[in-house]
């Protein structure tokens, strides 16, 4: 049976602007049946999704287990994070005060 049925990975989106979420996989004889089964198997009681799609697993390229180990990141990427530049806000406050610029003219926004 499965010797000819293929594995489909099922993805859905909650909202049109949302990310693609993996639901699970299923066995089906064709993409059309896979789509019908995906709704039955994974979206019986959830809120209706904005979109749903299936991908034949043969067409997904997975990173190898050996390479996965290299995904672990060293703890040296702080300069990529906004928190690293926290001194900026303090500096703006300091400069404002020094030049006598009021809050109405220069707002210092916490979230950049």
């Amino acid at each position: 049976m499965e010797k000819d049925y293929e594995i489909y990975e099922v993805f859905s989106q909650k909202e049109p602007t949302g990310k693609y979420e993996s639901q699970f996989s299923l066995l089906a004889p064709s993409p059309e049946i896979a789509l019908a089964m995906a709704q039955e198997n994974f979206l019986r009681r959830e809120d209706p999704p904005a979109n749903l799609f299936v991908v034949n697993r043969r067409h997904i390229h997975f990173i190898s287990p050996e390479a996965r180990v290299a995904l672990r990141r060293m703890d040296n990427k702080a300069y990529r994070m906004p928190g690293y530049y926290g001194r900026v806000l303090k500096k703006w406050h300091e400069l404002k005060a020094r030049r006598g610029i009021g809050d109405r003219l220069l707002k210092v926004e916490e979230d950049g």
């Binding site: 499965e2 066995l27 039955e40």
Partner: peptide, 27 residues
């Protein structure tokens, strides 16, 4: 009852992926 069949499908998929390298299937 439909949920139980759905759970069966999920779990069989997990089992199938474990026996697949040896040419074994759901059947």
């Amino acid at each position: 009852v439909q949920d139980e069949m759905g759970h069966g499908q999920l779990l069989l998929r997990v089992a199938e992926d474990l026996i697949r390298p040896f040419g074994k299937t759901r059947e």
